[in-house]
């Protein structure tokens, strides 16, 4: 049994830990490189838990998130990243979109 990386009550999300990524660039890369069925499965799993996840995270200050909570927090940011793929475009990338690799973020 690998070491648990998420807070205890969110262990069901462990299988999505690969989406726990710190920067927009990493999250965007993963979205662009993933199959739509994986993106949709992650989206549905996260969306179903958000009503519990956000109140859980809000008991901490953003600067002092414990490591397991921080990983969970990064999962919520990945939900934000993949949402347009599911809700707007029906595919990982923007339909007929500009090459996102060329749109370089100077933020994290």
């Amino acid at each position: 049994m690998p070491e648990a990386r998420l807070p205890e009550q969110f262990r069901d999300l462990e299988q999505w830990i690969g989406w726990s990524l710190e920067t927009e660039g990493e999250r965007s890369d993963r979205r662009q490189a993933s199959a739509m069925e994986d993106i949709t499965a992650f989206y549905e799993a996260m969306l179903a838990r958000m009503e519990e996840v956000l109140p859980y995270l809000e008991q901490f200050s953003l600067e002092e998130l414990p490591d397991d909570a921080k990983r969970l927090f990064y999962l919520t940011l990945s939900l934000a990243e993949v949402a347009p793929a599911v809700e707007q475009f029906g595919q990982p990338s923007v339909v007929d979109g500009y090459d996102i690799k060329r749109f370089v973020a100077s933020h994290r």
Partner: peptide, 11 residues
């Protein structure tokens, strides 16, 4: 992220 994706349509 949504803004970025909208801009990708413009680009």
């Amino acid at each position: 992220v949504l803004l970025r994706d909208i801009l990708m349509e413009d680009g």
